[in-house]
Amino acid sequence: MTKTILAVDDSPSVRQMVQMTLKGAGYTVVEAVDGEDALDKARRGRFDAVITDQNMPKLDGIGFIRRFRELPTAVGVPVVFLSTESRDDLKAEARAAGATGWMTKPFDQTMLLNVVKKIAG
């Protein structure tokens, strides 16, 4: 069974890069343009993993993760947190919100694939 990944990023180019990389590896990718959109999609279905950016309009990454974790569909779903900064306090904050793993931008396709494979199997 193919695994479905929810990719949350306000940047279309990043979404496309994630989409292409993961599709090539056999995953199904659902895109969301910001935290609100992602929450909306997460309420309607269950994903095998979520990859979310931090800086987004409406609802940022950490805010999204926090509210996502309140959903019953979120139990056991790993969330990868993306950020441009590798600040430890931000990482800690994301983890406290419920992130499972993280990645620092910029990342390449191999890195992305490694992380998703590790987290989502």
Binding site: A49, V75, G76, V77, P78, V79, G98, A99, T100, K118, I119, G121
Partner: peptide, 14 residues
């Protein structure tokens, strides 16, 4: 860990 989506089985496999 399991609620947050970590898979012990996968870690052990690694």
């Amino acid at each position: 860990a399991i609620r947050l989506g970590h898979h012990p089985r996968r870690l052990l496999d690694e």
